[in-house]
Design a binder for these strands. Structure first.
Ligand SMILES: [Zn+2]
Ligand SMILES: [Zn+2]
Ligand SMILES: [Zn+2]
Ligand SMILES: [Zn+2]
Lengths: 148, 148
DNA sequence: ACCAATAATGAGAATCATTTCCAAAAGTCC
DNA sequence: GGACTTTTGGAAATGATTCTCATTATTGGT
């Protein structure tokens, strides 16, 4: 399963890169494929396990570039190392289940009703603090099914 | 303003440390005071600015120990460096306004009603994923008043 | 297809927040 | 005080991430 990206996602990414005067090279496409195939945000180790022939320095460099362009989001859950996933523009708004035992991270979503309630409350809190919000980030901490 | 901790907080911390067979030394008390006096979670630099005579290695070591004992929470908002605050056991449940421009972090709270709605929804999501939740973490990302 | 001109690659070296070492200092208990 | 255990602090080590730079790939014009 080398390059397994839906055509429309691939096109969207191509547009974003071209707009930023960046090229959509094979290495970057393989990186995007690894992130797309992964369940939840991936560590560098997990990316390299999926694409072992991609050099580490290129993966790091391209993750940084893809993040600047708005294709990738970098996540730091706990000190050890960062995780990367496709940006919400390209996927869907979601949150993370973080296992405090094994460190694994999985995605989950809330209903539109709860998200609305939350957004309203957050907007109000922001207003009283003179803060201009652009996004929220919500994680659930606990123990995953495997570590049960 | 060297050692400015409310007596009951100080006592609570003393109990937690004794329970863990750790001593409540002067250095640890000064560290706790710096965290208590700070508005929002502090970086190591901010802690050292508040207590310049505390050696860096001792601050790091004691932050780790205080975190293990449940007195301090370590927060990583974005790759650069970690921030530390007193654990919610010793303060109150709250969330963070994170300025994506200057990196500053401030506290805020939601109403009990919103927190309940959220907790119910999160519990439901956790259940369907076989995940055992212990806490949630919610940040609002955007631009702070200073960066307006 | 060929040729510049420009951008991306990859292997290793450098960075820097954080951790670890270990001999000296401080606290504890009798 | 003396023996024992924990903590301290300065310096060295660690390790994820970033930077360097010579080589390679890609683009656009001819
Ligand atoms: Zn787990
Ligand atoms: Zn949400
Ligand atoms: Zn700001
Ligand atoms: Zn909450």
């Amino acid at each position: 399963m080398p390059t397994d990206i839906p055509t429309d996602l691939d096109d969207e990414i191509a547009v974003l890169l071209r707009r930023a005067e960046q090229r959509y090279t094979t290495g970057r496409r393989r990186l995007v494929a690894a992130l797309h195939n992964g369940e939840g945000p991936l560590t560098l180790g997990q990316i390299m396990a999926a694409e072992p022939t991609l050099p580490q320095s290129s993966v790091y460099r391209n993750l940084t570039i893809l993040e600047e362009v708005g294709i990738v989001t970098r996540i730091v859950t706990n000190g050890d190392f960062a995780r990367y996933e496709l940006a919400e523009n390209l996927t869907e708004h979601h949150h993370h289940l973080i296992c405090t035992n094994c460190g694994d991270v999985a995605d989950f979503s809330l209903s539109g009703r709860v998200e609305s309630t939350l957004d309203r409350a957050l907007a109000e809190s922001a207003r009283t603090a003179g803060f201009t919000p652009t996004a929220h980030r919500l994680d659930l901490l606990g123990t995953c099914a495997d570590c049960g």
